[in-house]
């Protein structure tokens, strides 16, 4: 057998698609040997059928792809979600979820992502930066999730909800029945500023990070990394 189609090889390490479509066409002979990170922001979508997904998002074509950052708004709908969940999610070692403007169908999309993520043997690090009331609580704890990962990254603001705080304390102490996380990492400047109902000493069960500068955001509220999330953090940022 002789193959004469060109093989295209790129040295990209990160591909960030924002509010646009990544169209999977002419896919049989593509190779992304150094691509490590895929970011889908805003309403970004991937258009392609199962065979195209299988050609592009495979360990052969993308052997190093391990970091996913997702705003699931564009992935709503079964025709978008199902191939993504089947072919892309299993490659992820780290998964960052982000959404600022919660809309119809977002919860379903995030829930489906989480349902599959908890089954993924590769997933080690999870970041949930969802600025919508109760959404992190619901996608993390609805449907009796069960997962075992190295680190879970959240905004310290999540401790403002008593229900969320109690569950996170249980996870951080290793007392949660089904969610096992080695390290719960909270982002915020001050341990004292979050969850005033909770005893101060309880905050010590978390690892606290503040990245400073523009990353502190409006009113000093900090959220975990999205675009550059891989589960690591700089020791200098420890609070």
């Amino acid at each position: 057998m002789t193959l004469t189609d060109p093989i295209l090889i790129t040295d990209l390490e990160t591909l960030h698609v924002s509010d646009a479509s990544l169209i999977l066409s002419d896919t049989p002979q593509l190779s992304f040997p150094t691509l490590k990170r895929l970011v889908l922001a805003d309403r970004a979508i991937i258009e392609g059928d199962h065979p195209a997904y299988a050609n592009v998002f495979s360990t052969a074509a993308m052997p190093k792809l391990s970091d996913l950052a997702l705003d699931c708004h564009g992935l709503r709908g079964m025709d978008m979600l199902v191939p993504f969940i089947k072919h892309v999610l299993p490659l992820a070692r780290s998964l960052a979820l982000n959404r600022n403007d919660f809309g119809d169908g977002d919860l379903k999309a995030y829930s489906m992502i989480m349902e599959e993520a908890q089954r993924s043997p590769k997933l080690e690090h999870l970041s949930v930066a969802l600025d919508a009331e109760d959404l992190p609580l619901r996608i993390l704890f609805e449907d009796s999730p069960s997962f075992k990962i190295e680190s879970l990254h959240l905004s310290g603001e999540e401790l403002g909800s008593r229900e969320m705080a109690e569950r996170l304390f249980a996870i951080a102490k290793g007392e949660h029945e089904t969610i096992k996380v080695e390290k719960v990492v909270m982002y915020g400047k001050s341990k004292e500023g979050h969850g005033d109902d909770c005893p101060e000493k309880q905050h010590e069960v978390f690892t606290w990070i503040s990245r400073g500068g523009f990353k502190c955001g409006f009113l000093g509220m900090e959220y975990p990394p999205f675009e550059d999330f891989d589960g690591s953090f700089h020791p200098a940022n420890l609070v």
Binding site: L8, I9, T10, L12, E13, T14, L15, H16, V17, S18, D19, A20, S21, L22, I23, L24, S25, D26, T27, L30, S31, F32, V39, V56
Partner: peptide
């Protein structure tokens, strides 16, 4: 690092 906000084919990225 490539950041795009236009519809684009994966074969072009490649």
């Amino acid at each position: 690092y490539l950041s795009i906000d236009v519809d684009v084919s994966i074969s072009l990225i490649a």
